[in-house]
Each structure stands twice: as structure tokens, then as C-alpha cells.
Simulated scan of single mutants.
Amino acid sequence: MSTRTRILEVAAGLVAESPDGDVSTRAVCEAAQVGAPALYRHFKDKEGLLSAVVDYGFDKYLATKRRRSPGADPVEDLRNGWDSHVDFALQNPNLYRLMNSPAMRTPPAAALESHQILTRDLERAAAQGKLRLAPELAAQIVMSANVGVALMLVSRPSTFTDKSMSRRVRDAVHAAVFTPDVTGPRTASDDSGSGADDVQLPSTAARLSALLRQSPDSALSAAETALMTEWLDRLSNTPPNR
């Protein structure tokens, strides 16, 4: 085992056992039986070490997503993705809080990869005409809600005790980003007076944009493709009744 791996494994264990999820570089060095210069040579500073710990731990979770073959229904993949995200947070509360800590000035690579996987699934949904927003905006909405739910569950377990809460929030968020035929009928009050066109136009624009990105032999030039994509994304992301 390399010195770097030993330091990472020791630091990950100390983070998991810590009451507040924080560790000192001195404690890591003592437990790993290395000097401070070795730690700083591999990780530069404490933030670099903690960022590497997050990537090291979260890599196990992402490994299952990397191996997963896309299902026929991207919406079902997205539902399962939400649930597995929350399950990982509950099983690794200190690691998860660390990953989403404001003190981490540089987002861990694992967080960026997780967001990219989510966006790809949403792009597949858009290509099937199931998304009412551009995939990039939908990914921001879904990820922020998913992370928010997970953080509340691990940070305030005595307050957030309803086991169905995560599923309820998931379904409400999905109703906002997917077309009504995917999530079920919505009432007039749910749509705030919007008509079918308020859903059909953004959904069609999102689908065309996704298909345009996937087309390797577009008849458009690079500049025309960029302009068309900008227009389609603007149409798909425009709020109803505006």
C-alpha cells in the first residue's frame, strides 16, 4: 500500500468516527505513522486532504453508477438515482456533510462527476420528450433538492423523522421538471393556470436541443448549432405565462 493510500484510508476512518466529521492533520499523521512533510507533499494542505478523502469515499458510490448500463426508462433511472444518493448520505453522514461543506472552497471531483451523471440521464429523458426544461437547468433543480433533503436527514435526524419525506420531495421535484404524462395528471392549481401549450412548447424545445447535441452529422455549422441550442434552451427554460 502506498503512503498516499494509507493516509487516505486513515483520514477517512477518522472522519467517519469523529463526532463532528472534522479531523486534524496531526491526528492523521499519528494514526498513519507518517510525518507532516509526507502528508503535505501528497495533499498540500488540510483542505486538499479532506477533498481527497471525499473523493476516495464517494468513489465507491460512484463506481456503482459508472458500471450501471442506462435503462430503457431514464425517468426510472433518475428516481433510483435520487434514492441511492440519499441512502449513501445516510450511510456516510460525516463524509456527506464534508462533501457539501461551505468550507470546501474547491468542489470535490466526485461532486462534479455525480452532477455530470445526473445531467446525462436528464439528457436521455429530454431526447424522449419527457423533460419540460433544458437538461442543465433540470439538473441544477434536481441536484439542489436531492442534496438539501440528504443534508437535512443527516444533520437533523431528530427533526426529519418521516421516512416518506425524501420520496415526497423527489416526486414533487420530478413533477416540476418532467412532462405531465410522466408524473401523472396535475390539477389546475398545480399548473397555476397554465395550459397545455405552457408544457408542450418547453418540452419540445428541450427535446430538439437534446437531439441536436446528440446528432454527429448535423447539417448546421458550429455557429448555427450554438445559436440554435441557445434559442431552444431559452424556450425550454422560460417560466409559464411570461
Results as ranks from 00 to 15, higher is better:
68 R>M: 15
192 S>T: 06
129 G>F: 06
126 A>R: 07
111 A>C: 10
20 D>I: 02
154 V>K: 09
235 L>Y: 04
220 L>H: 06
163 K>P: 03
67 R>L: 09
32 A>E: 03
61 Y>M: 11
193 G>D: 10
170 R>I: 00
164 S>K: 13
57 G>V: 06
80 N>E: 15
152 M>Y: 09
78 L>R: 09
80 N>F: 01
195 G>L: 00
120 R>H: 04
67 R>A: 15
96 Y>P: 05
117 I>H: 13
195 G>V: 02
42 H>Q: 11
72 A>V: 13
238 T>Y: 08
6 R>C: 04
176 A>C: 00
130 K>G: 07
206 A>H: 02
3 T>N: 11
27 A>K: 06
187 T>A: 07
51 S>C: 13
52 A>L: 07
194 S>F: 07
57 G>F: 00
197 D>L: 15
3 T>S: 14
74 P>T: 13
212 L>W: 08
160 F>N: 06
139 A>W: 08
78 L>Q: 12
174 H>K: 04
136 E>C: 05
30 E>S: 14
52 A>Y: 04
235 L>W: 04
196 A>R: 10
152 M>I: 03
233 D>K: 09
242 R>E: 06
99 M>E: 06
151 L>Q: 12
111 A>N: 09
141 I>F: 08
176 A>D: 02
189 S>P: 00
136 E>G: 13
130 K>V: 00
192 S>C: 05
129 G>H: 05
27 A>P: 04
132 R>P: 00
133 L>A: 04
217 D>C: 02
236 S>F: 03
228 M>Q: 06
21 G>A: 09
51 S>Q: 11
225 T>Y: 00
229 T>I: 12
138 A>H: 02
197 D>V: 10
161 T>W: 01
81 G>S: 14
107 P>Y: 03
139 A>T: 09
103 A>L: 11
200 Q>Y: 07
59 D>K: 12
166 S>L: 01
218 S>V: 14
48 G>W: 09
33 Q>C: 06
78 L>C: 07
26 R>A: 15
157 P>C: 08
116 Q>K: 14
75 V>Q: 08
8 L>D: 02
40 Y>N: 10
156 R>L: 13
126 A>P: 12
224 E>F: 03
61 Y>A: 14
97 R>L: 14
166 S>A: 15
185 P>W: 10
85 H>Q: 10
131 L>W: 04
18 S>Y: 06
177 V>P: 07
201 L>M: 09
168 R>L: 11
207 R>M: 15
195 G>P: 01
78 L>W: 05
210 A>D: 07
126 A>F: 06
230 E>L: 11
95 L>T: 12
139 A>F: 08
